[in-house]
Design a protein around this nucleic acid. Structure first.
Lengths: 223, 223, 223, 223
DNA sequence: GATGAATGAGCTTTCATTCAT
DNA sequence: GATGAATGAAAGCTCATTCAT
């Protein structure tokens, strides 16, 4: 079987520097076609995984949703696990890309931080099902894939570490531990997803986000 | 086959008031025996689930770890899914029970809150594998079971809501949204588990907890 | 899955000395049952392999012939390859055992050799389908299994080497290469099987065997 | 789809007389092209079959080795089984052709027979992998193809029957069964291949062949 | 009540073959 | 004539569950 390894498209320039981006096998050599079909595949997989989870979804299910037979799927992907990897990769990429775009580098450091946190929250809410999916299924990735995905998130955290450090400097309120702080502000908003069964019943989304933003700003000591 | 429904043992008195506590089928009529065997079963299941996850663990695996054969297991439990339910139930119960015990109702409200948050963090760290397990596998529960487990957590959150409201009153700094605040302080510490791949590399556990405590206290505006 | 390795029963005492007799996985712990079921399995497999060959026989086919479902088969065997190994092992064992029993250690060395060759031929003819099967499918064994089977045949050849050497000594006609000679007399009779499409049309079995015996005796220079 | 049946090229004139030479379907109408492409195909297939066997070789594998895509292959051949037939056909043809050429029709009947046997052995050794391939995979042919191949071998045996009969007459030592004898001398040398795992370890090739030649000559009673 | 053999549905994956381009 | 994407049947294997002993 002729095989070709196609690097997974990734939205960031730093991708090149990332450890070893996992390769996914494709039987087809037409890179454009591979990209296209994988796109359909991943989109379909996200839909069914959201509903049934990775393990309770069969390759046939994915195929049905994507309008491909299983045989076809295996032209573009080496295994079911590859699909999960592509799904996680895409979700993380999209989430991060969108967050990046929503950042507001206006002058005031307080405003900058607030807007950054708000951006995270809003993208989180918008993609809540996908985020939930990664929290529920990413541990099913093989060790290598998981490391790649985590490395990607780590980069994302690093970006916020820079933002916070800069703001802290400008405000004259040095952060004792910027890495921890960056983890805090990128992680905390997942509460909107992982606790939505508790929060949804009692709060409106917009309020939640404002509350969260203020909570984090205070937590950082930037108020 | 004579069957009997045995209420799942739960550490709290309020259990009776919980919506509809899920029943788990047992073929055996001896309630004590059922309790004992389920205890062994759950303990064994936790161990193997932590290592391999629910889906990659077979009923045989659980049986081997518990010293029971498959047939025996089905005397005390109706299905593999039941075991997952019992496991989640026990983990949540133990976690909550232990946290409750660690609360310090000393006079000073600030100290009280700090100690409460620290208690959560410490139990979280102590049971990190079990907590991770619930975050990874609880979505595999059927809707009913999930609701029961969530209701249990909601109770727990409610307890902290009370603590926070009381402290806020004493401090004269009213919380705009105690339910949200209670979710915040009970959820945030999960970062120690769900981001441990990022945090472990760079921070010592004790520092992390102190940082977290102060972050939350500031976030609450109790500082 | 609880597993037990059961040594494949082998007819010869020397088995213990054989390199590393291949182990075959069994999920069942009851050694007697394993033996019994494997017996049925192998018998059924021989029948279908003879007809369709290893590759064109599915595990389901074997199961149907053996009166077991595939699930059951995998209680007694680790893989389809294991079945092939067991089949080859049994065929070789039976063939050799039967040949051994047919040996006539009478006084006259010429008669002894003749009877040995005749024994080989007769058992060969009796088990021609099975012998054919090993010649057609044994190359599908994994390297390890093949080595074990070959080692078994080598032993068999060795036995004849001894017989021939002894006879040669008694006759005062030393064999230049007893190992080669032993290979010759154990291999040549396979012609009855591997060329049966040519021989059957024109010759009667009994004549063939006599011809073969005399051919070999002359070839050895024992005439 | 226009189809044309192309007779398989065969090296011997007698081919026309052979029962019913199997036809192999070709989508292409250009007989020369078909011959050429099939040549490439067969050569490639022999190489991969030798290594992995028929069943473990996919049509893609053959195509890759032959520098053709799957689609192209099916322009020149009707099925994967056809390829096996062509492969067996070619191997047998080449083997026989080469042996024929090596025959030495010198005057002395003993020398003639010796040289004939030696020729068989030498070609056998030279083509051992191909010969092994036919012994391992020819049973995968459909009945018709197998019959055709066997008929071809029967012709070959017939040729040696003539040689032996003639020699026997000249020597004044009539052979009781020339057909059997011809089978014996054409089959016995396969020992060099089918027992090579036993012989290679202990003997040098040239010695083996000499031993074999003498063994057969004695067996025939021509010594 | 305990056992573990039996079941069979269901899984992922491969691959010979077809056919639109 | 060449391509290779698509197909879908069929394979080996696993495992939750049942039930006779």
């Amino acid at each position: 079987m002729a095989e070709v390894k196609v690097k997974v498209a990734s939205g960031a320039k730093e991708a090149a520097a990332r450890p070893r981006a996992r390769q996914v096998k494709a039987a087809s050599k037409d890179a454009d076609l591979v990209r296209e079909k994988r796109g359909q595949l991943v989109a379909a997989a996200v839909r069914v995984f959201k509903e049934k989870g990775f393990h309770d979804t069969s390759v046939r299910d994915i195929g049905r949703e994507a309008g491909m037979t299983q045989g076809t799927i295996y032209n573009y992907v080496g295994s079911k696990d590859d699909i999960l990897y592509l799904v996680c990769d895409q979700i993380v990429s999209e989430y991060q890309e969108e967050t990046r775009k929503a950042l507001d580098n206006s002058a005031d450091p307080r405003t900058r931080v607030r807007s950054a946190v708000r951006a995270i929250c809003e993208v989180m809410v918008k993609h809540q099902d996908e985020v939930l999916l990664t929290y529920q299924d990413s541990h099913l990735l093989d060790a290598r894939s998981r490391r790649v995905i985590f490395a990607r998130v780590e980069e994302f955290v690093g970006m916020f570490e820079t933002i916070l450090t800069e703001a802290a400097r400008e405000l004259g309120r040095p952060l004792p531990d910027p890495h921890f702080a960056a983890n805090a502000i990128t992680f905390f908003p997942t509460m909107l997803v992982l606790r939505r069964w508790s929060l949804k019943a009692r709060h409106r989304q917009s309020e939640l986000i404002e509350w969260l933003v203020e909570f984090l700003v205070r937590g950082l000591g930037f108020e």
